[in-house]
């Protein structure tokens, strides 16, 4: 049971990190293309990356709670 909990905990943290890192890179690159200054682009992208990573964590947890049985 503890092992299951650790796996679930790790998976949520992984979702947050993957989305945050991915979005901050993509977001910063998109903003730079639009001509936004690099430091401003990075800070804007970091903010939106945090927000979207938490939304992804929420959706992931809800999805797993509702459809987890399909994969177990």
């Amino acid at each position: 049971m503890i092992v299951d909990s650790i796996i679930r905990l790790t998976s949520v943290v992984a979702v947050i990190l993957i989305v945050a890192l991915g979005w901050s890179r993509i977001g910063a690159a998109r903003l730079k293309k639009k001509g936004v200054e690099e430091s401003k682009a990075k800070s804007e992208a970091k903010k939106s990356a945090t927000k979207y990573s938490l939304i992804a964590a929420f959706l992931y947890m809800v999805a797993m709670v509702s459809v987890a049985g399909l994969f177990m």
Binding site: M1, R8, V12, L54, F58, M61, V62, M64
Partner: peptide, 12 residues
Amino acid sequence: FGRLFYLFVFPD
């Protein structure tokens, strides 16, 4: 958000 995490990670 903490409660959702609790339900997801520690359902037992």
